[in-house]
Structures are given as structure tokens and as C-alpha cells.
């Protein structure tokens, strides 16, 4: 009898071993859940949904978007972290993912999430209200040095890109500008347009209409290269802070231990989606551009972003709990 039992156990173990393999070859055989760790409406949501629709088509099974907002994206990302690593739960991550480890005590290890691929990167613009008497980055730096702590910049909240991107600028340029946090990108934009706070670093899509109408003046863009949407605007690096570079980005991760075959399959489908002209057009209109990366490269990219923002959070003395 014991022999019989051990035999059964062995068979069960073998079955258990082969089961995932079988599962992989026909992945996906049911809808895949894509967790977006932010509420509907933000950039993460728009980018995630745009990609999810097409990614579902390429994979042959619907991709269901599941918004799990909260705590700067950590609630949703924790869900991804704790999900079974079978490829049926994936998550969208953004720059917040690289910032959160340094701001919050996370209930998960963000480095352990399996990288799947990068979706797109987005450019930010340093804008000012016309009532501020500067017209270039150099003049802004000069004015800020003349009146340390008196100029003020608006952000979408502590730990937001608008906050960290500007803090990085302050560090690299060696200036002191007062941070005025708002509850989200909309309210901060309203305030800057009204000329109450006068400086902001924000996404291309949010700022372009106002730059074109003359209500805001673009001093520089944050990427390595000039943006095709604002070709006359220099990069921050060109304009006088050579070491500055910061981009928004959005990617996909999976729970640790997700089989490599599944990750590769999703990554391949993702690159196919990124090649679709309509997807590229939609991203262009959002002031972002698709950028392909292998899963491994994306993993390295995330780690590099983490160490970049670790430095900014620590040197700028940003705290949250």
C-alpha cells in the first residue's frame, strides 16, 4: 500500500510539473487581467487601456483592464506581486514604480516583479507663466539663485513626476525653488495658468495647448532629444543643465516566477502592438512615443530608474510615510 501511495504521489508530482508546461503552450486560454494601479482617467489608465485592447487581439484572448488605484500605485502593484505567476495577471507600472520604494515602506519587493516590456516614454516640459520675468532656463536659474526659496513651482503632489522631475532639476542646477503640491495634475495646471504659482514641469499633452495659445511659456523639454511636437524648444541639457534627463515611462510587469515563455510571448505581442500605425499615432497625440525593449532590458531600465530617483529622493530630502 505505501508503495502504491508513493507511486501515486510521484505521478501527481510529475503531473504538477508538466501541467504548467501545457498551460504555457496554449497561453492564454482565458482572459488576461491587466491591473492598472491608478484610477481611471490618468496617463497610466489611458496608456494601459490603449495597449490592452490591441494586446488582447494579438494574444487572441481579451485583456481585461482592472483599475486598482491607491497609495501612489502601491495598492495595485502589491496585487500584481501577490497574484499567481501564471501570466493571467499582469500590471502596468510607471515612473511611480521607481519612486515609491524610496517614499513608502512597501509591503512587497518591487525589484522582484518580473519585467515584461516597456510600452512608451513621454516627454515633460518645463513651463512658466508669462508674468515670470525669465525666458530661458539660464535666466530662470539666475533668478532662482538671486532669490533662493522665493520662486515657487506647482506639482501634482508629493512623489509625482512633476515633483521629482523638478527636484532633479533643482539638484542639477543647484537652485532652491519652493515646492507647492496640489491634489493631481489638473488643479496644479489651473493654478499655474492663473499665474498663482508660476513654474511647473508637466507632460507634453497637458501643456502643449497652453504653450501654443501663449498662456504658458516653454523653457525646455526634459528628454535627451528635442520633442518633435515642440521642435523649437531646447532640451534642459541644451539649455544649461547638461546632466539633466528625465522621462515619463509606462511598462508592463508580471508576478515573480512567471514562466519565461509566457513573458516572451507577451513581449513579442507587445512589440507587434507597438508597430501598429494607429497605436503609434495615438501615442504621438498623447505626447508620448512607443519604445521597444526586451524583457531583460526593461528590467535593467527599471533598476536604473530606481537608483536615479533614489538619489533624488534622498538628496532632496523628500519624505512621505
Amino acid at each position: 500500500m505505501p508503495r502504491m501511495r508513493s507511486l501515486l504521489l510521484t505521478a501527481a508530482a510529475l503531473l504538477a510539473l508538466t501541467a504548467p508546461l501545457a498551460a504555457q503552450s496554449d497561453y492564454p486560454n482565458r482572459p488576461v487581467r491587466l491591473i492598472i494601479p491608478f484610477p481611471p482617467g490618468g496617463s497610466n489608465d489611458v496608456v494601459g487601456r490603449m495597449v490592452a485592447t490591441h494586446l488582447g487581439e494579438k494574444l487572441g484572448k481579451q485583456m481585461v483592464v482592472d483599475n486598482r488605484g491607491g497609495a501612489g500605485g502601491t495598492v495595485g502593484t502589491e496585487l500584481v506581486f501577490n497574484a499567481p505567476p501564471d501570466g493571467y495577471t499582469l500590471g502596468v507600472v510607471s515612473i511611480a514604480h521607481a519612486v515609491n520604494p524610496w517614499l513608502y515602506k512597501l509591503p512587497y519587493d518591487p525589484r522582484k516583479l518580473a519585467p515584461v516590456g516597456l510600452m512608451a516614454t513621454g516627454t515633460n516640459v518645463l513651463v512658466i507663466h508669462p508674468s515670470l520675468p525669465v525666458r530661458s532656463v539660464k535666466e530662470l536659474i539666475a533668478l532662482a539663485k538671486q532669490k533662493p526659496g522665493e520662486l515657487q513651482y506647482a506639482s501634482a503632489g508629493i512623489g509625482s513626476f512633476q515633483h521629482l522631475g523638478t527636484e532633479l532639476f533643482k539638484l542639477e542646477a543647484g537652485v532652491n525653488i519652493l515646492h507647492v503640491p496640489f491634489r493631481g495634475g489638473g488643479p496644479s495646471m489651473n493654478d499655474v495658468l492663473g499665474g498663482h504659482t508660476k513654474i511647473m514641469m508637466s507632460s507634453l499633452v497637458q501643456t502643449t495647448p497652453h504653450i501654443k495659445s501663449g498662456r504658458l511659456i516653454a523653457l525646455a523639454t526634459g528628454g535627451k532629444k528635442r520633442s518633435p511636437i515642440l521642435p523649437d524648444v531646447p532640451t534642459v541639457a541644451e539649455a544649461g543643465v547638461p546632466t539633466y534627463e528625465a522621462l515619463n515611462w509606462w511598462g508592463i510587469v508580471a508576478p515573480a516566477g512567471t514562466p519565461q515563455a509566457i513573458i516572451d510571448k507577451v513581449n513579442t505581442a507587445l512589440s507587434q502592438v507597438q508597430e501598429l500605425p494607429e497605436v503609434q499615432k495615438q501615442f504621438d497625440l498623447q505626447g508620448a512615443s512607443v519604445q521597444k525593449m526586451t524583457a531583460a532590458d526593461f528590467g535593467k531600465f527599471v533598476l536604473a530608474e530606481m537608483s536615479r530617483w533614489e538619489r533624488v529622493v534622498k538628496e532632496a530630502g523628500i519624505t512621505a510615510q
Binding site: 489611458v46 489638473g186 489651473n190 501654443k212 495659445s213
Partner: peptide
């Protein structure tokens, strides 16, 4: 072209995706 609320921000997004630059023009 100002997002007065979350819903309005989405509408702006919808316009942008349609290739329309929201704003006074």
C-alpha cells in the same frame, strides 16, 4: 482647455486622441 474635474480631464484626453488640441483655438 482646462480640466476642471476628473471627467473634464478625460474629455480633454478624448479630444487629444482624436487629434484635436484642446484650448481656446
Amino acid at each position: 482647455g482646462l480640466p476642471a474635474s476628473g471627467v473634464m480631464a478625460l474629455m480633454l484626453g478624448a479630444l487629444t486622441i482624436q487629434g484635436i488640441q484642446p484650448g481656446p483655438e
